[in-house]
């Protein structure tokens, strides 16, 4: 039993879906934002990233999907070195990595149905109309917003927009999901609902996630492991319980 446990642990350790080594990024001449980020996301894990505004959390996950190109270092996603891929190869990885923007970034000119349809259709050339409809209904069901199917994004509340944004990434059945401040700007009740949704998605779909947040309730609920960024480097990491009791006052200040 003990032996099996250690075996499980060691295989899990060797199963990272994202590995970042010594990632650097400078904007303009002297805005050195990322100063050597090291980060590993293991399969099936929910990794929460904390850090003050402007420390480069969003930039880090944008580098993972190739939206921003890092200057130096290595990023491996699902075994592929994404800093050296061409667009076609990169797109194959991008389909497997869902990205939920802080603003949800729904396509304003399209209804909820069209937002999902647009994404789905472009990755399944020979899918039938019935399949499209049933996939859309199913994914909306799973984010709890089946009734919003014919609404326009402008008619949705902040929490609903996040859910639809999530549905839009889920419809491609990603293995990894990156959440950029999923609960920022939402009221406490809605924040809790979104956090629970994140957790349930990870349970049901066996996805691995990186969750950037300032919302400690969300972190407590979802995190298997927490990473704290400070001035462009990883300052410390640990479980919620470990970091809560940290000796370091600055680290503890996140948990008040």
């Amino acid at each position: 039993m003990v032996a099996q446990q250690t075996l499980n642990n060691s295989t899990e350790d060797k199963n990272p879906v994202i590995e970042i080594n010594n990632l650097h990024k400078t904007f303009g001449a002297d805005n050195h934002v990322l100063k050597g980020i090291n980060l590993t996301l293991n399969k099936g894990e929910d990794l929460v990233v904390l850090g003050k505004s402007g420390t480069g959390k969003s930039i880090t996950i944008k580098c993972i999907v190739g939206l921003i190109k890092g200057d130096e270092g290595e990023i491996k996603v699902l075994g592929q070195d994404i800093m050296n891929l061409n667009t076609k190869e990169l797109n194959k990885i991008r389909v497997k990595v869902g990205f939920l923007f802080q603003s949800a970034a729904l396509y304003d000119s399209m209804s909820v149905r069209e937002n999902l349809d647009f994404t789905l259709r472009r990755h399944n050339a020979d899918i039938s109309e019935e399949e499209i409809t049933s996939e859309i209904e199913e994914v909306l069901e799973s984010v709890g917003l089946a009734e919003a199917i014919d609404k326009m994004p402008s008619e949705l509340s902040g929490g609903m927009r996040k859910r639809i944004g999530l549905a839009r990434t889920l419809i491609l059945k990603p293995e990894i999901i990156l959440y950029d401040e999923p609960t920022t700007g939402l009221d406490t009740v809605t924040s809790k609902e979104i956090s629970e949704l994140i957790l349930s998605i990870q349970k049901e779909r066996k996805t691995s996630s990186i969750i950037i947040t300032h919302d400690m309730a969300c972190a407590k609920l979802t995190a298997d492991r927490i990473l704290i960024l400070k001035e462009g480097v990883v300052y410390t990491e640990g479980t919620y319980e470990e970091l809560e009791k940290s000796e370091d006052e600055w680290v503890r200040s996140f948990f008040i």
Binding site: L67, R94, V95, F101, A105, L106, Y107, D108, R122
Partner: peptide
């Protein structure tokens, strides 16, 4: 929204 298209390949 343009970035969202990009990351959805």
């Amino acid at each position: 929204q343009i970035d969202a298209m990009e990351v959805a390949a």
